[in-house]
Amino acid sequence: MTVLCLIETDAGGGAADASMRALAVARGLATSAGEDLAAAWFGSAEAIDPGGLVAAGVSSGCAIGTAALSGYAPLAWARALAGLATARPDAAGVVSGIVAAATDHGNEVLAHLGAITGLPMAANCVSAARTAPGEVTLVRQRWAGSLLEDAELDAPLALLTVAADAVPADAVMAGSTFAAADSLRVEGYEPELADGDLLVLAAESAERRSGVSLASARVVVGGGRGVGGPEGFAVLEELAGLLGGAVGVSRVVTSEGWRPHRQQVGQTGTKITPELYLACGISGAIQHMAGCQGAKTIVAINTDAGAPIVTKADYAVIGDLHEVIPALIAALRERQG
């Protein structure tokens, strides 16, 4: 038996960080029942670095492609994975579970898979283990992670997506106790698709936004109501630039129109997983914390020592961000010489 994990590619063409984190949960599911872990991706066999997959515990890979499939097509991707689950070309046998990162693509493809097969799909899982054939116990996020649900999934094929922000980066590698394969055996798979599977087909715009992406930034400088207005974000941008990071904002900032919605961190915005989240003038509503709980370290800068963010952060500076941030920028510039 095999657990299959869908690997998406990032902008550079390599395995997406969210998919690598999903692999950690897929590995947990596979090892709980002594099953193999396989990776599947759309594209050429060489598209994904085999070393990273092997280190994460993957023993076989499957590159899915056919001439008709020129880009991302959610239904076609789901159809291909469903086909692969029943007709795996290798000897590892039946697929017991399909796992993907809970990205726009992962959630969408697995939802289609659920609809095609008539099986349940559990989104935003944090962990999963097999208790019996056809039975998986899992923990999944509700309220974007502000609440956890312990659940039991009864299905011959377990369909899960993984909340990447709940998987620490250092959990991706399998560790020394895991007997990893020596090398990755990669095979090709050509799915049979109907015309209808390709009716929804993505076109990507040629324009690419420059700068560090919020979802994968190592440092995020956050701004909330305390920033005071659109002009107040210049210093946060400057600080983010100095630290090679990105600016994120709370919901009030986007609903006031101070910053575009794509910078929103939170339940209805982006979920971030930086090494450092520097939250400036943010009170720390539960919906915001849901978006930044994947940060390794949270430092709050706030005038109010009693703000919720101060109790939830690791470190705090009590003070006005308009005073602290320029002073921090000056200190960092001086340090750089």
Binding site: L119, P120, M121, A122, T137, R142, G145, S146, L147, L148, E149, D150, A151, E152, L153, D154, A155, Q293, I298, V299, A300, A305, V310, T311, K312, A313, D314, Y315, A316, V317, I318, G319, D320, E323, V324, A327, L328, A331
Partner: peptide, 30 residues
């Protein structure tokens, strides 16, 4: 096919922030 067993609030690992200081005076510590 997906049965809820129970809901729980995630355990907080934070015991409250360590305060580095007040205002610009906290910058060296930061």
């Amino acid at each position: 096919g997906l049965r809820k067993i129970r809901l729980r609030v995630p355990e907080s690992t934070s015991t409250g922030a360590q305060v580095l200081g007040s205002g610009a005076a906290a910058v060296p510590a930061l």
